[in-house]
């Protein structure tokens, strides 16, 4: 964070490339952050399907819910870019509207994530022993273990926490650190929103302040695009595709 907010009001010196220092810094930072998420994603993939006990991704994931939260994050990217466009056009009012929308959408995404983490941690299993339908492997295991003669259903808490298994460990730390990035972004954008009420705080001439925040925000969005595909949708496979 500190790197990214460095010297906000660098005066526009003449530079070798004609580009702004801070914008170059931002892009180098984003390139570096790619490696950060790559390491987390690699850890997730390396351990995929290696958990010794459940729950597995398919037991806890709710693709419709995550699709909605993905949609929310994508929309926040749109509102962010519209905020920037409004500022370039000189519409401070439009800027405030859109940037506030971005903050709200971003917070909504975080809300979804909190909800999801809570749901996973308190995952409830209900197995109808008499008429079992569509059991996952994990549920089948529970079925075999618990559904004996005379038992007509099985109910239990089988929550997923970072301690539960390798899937829990890698999933929570990957998405949690992404969530941390989103949180920092929300704080940053909120600061810009508040700052825009200070006279001369946010002006079309100083659009770079917003541009940098926007780049960061969109990056967080593209990381989620990858996480959504790799973590959630690849979840159909319990293990290696071999």
């Amino acid at each position: 964070m500190a790197e990214a907010t460095a010297s906000n009001h660098e005066s526009e010196h003449q530079t070798t490339t004609g580009l702004n220092h801070r914008k170059i810094l931002m892009w180098v930072f984003l390139g570096s952050d790619c490696m950060f998420f790559a390491t987390l994603i690699a850890t997730y993939l390396v351990y995929k399907g290696k958990s010794l006990s459940g729950p597995m991704p398919l037991d806890v994931f709710s693709i419709p819910v995550t699709t909605v939260s993905t949609f929310v994050l994508l929309m926040s990217s749109m509102s962010m870019v519209l905020a920037y466009a409004a500022l370039r056009k000189g519409s401070l009012k439009g800027y405030r509207t859109w940037i506030l929308s971005t903050v709200i959408l971003g917070s909504t995404f975080l809300g979804f994530q909190t909800f999801e983490f809570y749901e996973f941690a308190n995952h409830h299993v209900h197995i109808d022993c008499i008429n079992p339908v569509d059991l996952t492997d994990y549920e089948q295991g529970l079925f075999d273990k618990n559904c004996k003669d005379g038992v007509d259903h099985y109910d239990a808490q089988h929550g997923l926490t970072p301690k539960t298994n390798l899937f829990g460990t890698t999933f929570f730390v990957l998405t949690g650190l992404h969530g941390t990035h989103v949180t920092i972004g929300v704080i940053w954008l909120m600061s810009l929103f508040l700052y825009s009420f200070k006279k001369g705080g946010v002006t079309p001439e100083r659009h770079l302040d917003t541009d940098l925040a926007a780049l960061y925000w969109h990056f967080v969005d593209v990381v989620w695009i990858v996480i959504f595909a790799v973590v959630y949708l690849f979840g159909v496979f319990e293990g290696f595709p071999s």
Partner: peptide
């Protein structure tokens, strides 16, 4: 934007993809 930005970002991105695939 200027191509420099793409270069800086894509360097990190491609290396990141390479590391993921190598570890896999």
């Amino acid at each position: 934007d200027h191509r420099l930005f793409s270069t800086l970002f894509l360097t990190g991105l491609f290396l990141a993809i390479g590391v993921i695939f190598a570890l896999m």
